[in-house]
Amino acid sequence: MTALGFLYPGHSAEDDYPRIEQLLGSDIRLTLVHTDIGEDAHRVDALLEMGSQARLAAGVEELRLSGAEAVVWACTSGSFVYGWQGAHEQIRALARTAGLPASSTSFAFAHALGEIGARRVAVAATYPDDVAGLFVAFLKDAGVEVTGVRGAGVITAAEVATWGLDQILALAREADHPDASAVLLPDTALHTASHIPALEAALAKPVLTANQVTVWEALRLADRRVNAPQLGTLFTKEPIVQV
C-alpha cells in the first residue's frame, strides 16, 4: 500500500481525488486534509494568505497520522503566487514541518511537463488575467515557453467548481495554439478527473490538469509509477530519458 497525502484548500473539486484513486486501480490510498481557505478569492493578497506556512502546517499532523509517505500542497495559485523562489521556500517549510517529501501543484506542472517532453504550452486558466500571468511567469522560470494564455476571470473557487465539460473545453480551445504541445488547466477547484480523455481527444494533444498532476507528483515523490490511460497521456507516457 502506498499512502499519499494532500493539503487541499477548502471544498470545491475534492471529489476528483476519490475518482482518481479509483482510476489508478492499484494499492494506492489518497488522503485529503482540507486547509482553511480564508477568503475565497483569486486575488494576490488572498492567495498569499491561503498558502501561508501557518495554514499549511495546521493540516500536517493529520496527514502524518494517516501514514502518508509524501505530501503535496494541492493548490496551484496558492503556490505560484509566491514566485519561483518563494514557492520553493514554501515546500521546503512544508517538508520540514511534515518530515516528509513535499511539493505543490505548481511544481507538479513543471515536473509533469518534463515527463511528457512538452516545453511549449498553452494555458487555459479560470483565473483573472493578473493571476494567470503569475502562473505564466512561474512556468517561464521552469524553462517552459507559453504560446498563449487565456484567463476566464473567475474570482472564486466555488464558482469554478460548478463548471462542466462544455465550459472547460471551450476555455481550453480558446487558449490552444498550433505551436503548443500541451494545454494546461491549472486550477485545483476545477473538476477534470472524468474529462481528461475527452479533452485530449478534442484537442489532439496532451492535457494537464491541476488535480491530475497533483496526484502524479505525489506518486513521483513516493517513487511509484502507475499506468492509468483514463487519466491521460501523463499516466501512459514513458518517461523522457535525460542524456
Rank of each mutant, 00 (worst) to 15 (best):
A137I: 00
V131N: 09
E217S: 12
L47K: 00
T126K: 06
T192Q: 13
A46Y: 07
A108Q: 01
L32I: 10
T209P: 02
W216N: 13
R96L: 03
G153Y: 08
Y82T: 00
A70W: 04
A68E: 02
A102C: 06
V121E: 06
R225S: 15
A182M: 07
R119A: 07
A122C: 04
H195I: 12
Y82V: 01
F107V: 09
H42E: 12
P229I: 11
P229G: 08
E159S: 14
I168T: 15
T209A: 15
A198G: 04
E217T: 08
Q22S: 12
G5R: 09
R43G: 09
L139F: 10
A102P: 00
V213D: 01
L165G: 13
S26F: 00
S79F: 00
A175L: 12
S79Q: 04
T147D: 11
L169Q: 06
A110T: 03
R96F: 00
F135R: 15
D27P: 10
Q167V: 07
V154I: 15
L208S: 07
A180G: 07
I116Q: 11
R120K: 04
P206Y: 07
R120A: 01
L134G: 12
A110F: 00
R55V: 14
G143Q: 12
E159M: 13
G78K: 06
H42Q: 15
R150M: 01
V160Q: 12
T162K: 15
A193F: 05
G143Y: 03
A189E: 01
D36P: 02
L63R: 10
A46V: 12
R224M: 05
A57I: 01
H34P: 13
M50K: 14
P128T: 05
K140A: 05
E21R: 15
A170H: 08
V136F: 06
A87C: 13
A189Y: 01
R173C: 05
A228N: 09
I116K: 12
L4M: 13
V131D: 11
P18F: 03
A142E: 08
V215S: 08
L63C: 11
V71N: 12
L4H: 11
V226L: 08
K237S: 14
D223C: 09
L219T: 13
Q22W: 09
G86I: 03
Q90D: 06
S77Y: 04
A175C: 10
Q230Y: 11
V160T: 14
L4T: 12
E174V: 11
Q242G: 11
A132Q: 09
V241M: 13
L234I: 02
E200Y: 04
Y127W: 05
G164I: 03
R224L: 03
A228D: 07
L30K: 13
E21F: 10
V213N: 02
P128W: 01
T31P: 00
H34R: 15
I91V: 11
Q212S: 10
A152N: 14
Y17P: 13
G148E: 01
D223F: 02
A58G: 02
I20F: 12
T76W: 05
F80M: 06
F6Y: 14
S106G: 12
E62N: 09
H177E: 09
A58N: 01
V213P: 02
G67A: 08
F235P: 09
R224N: 03
P197H: 13
S194N: 12
L234M: 01
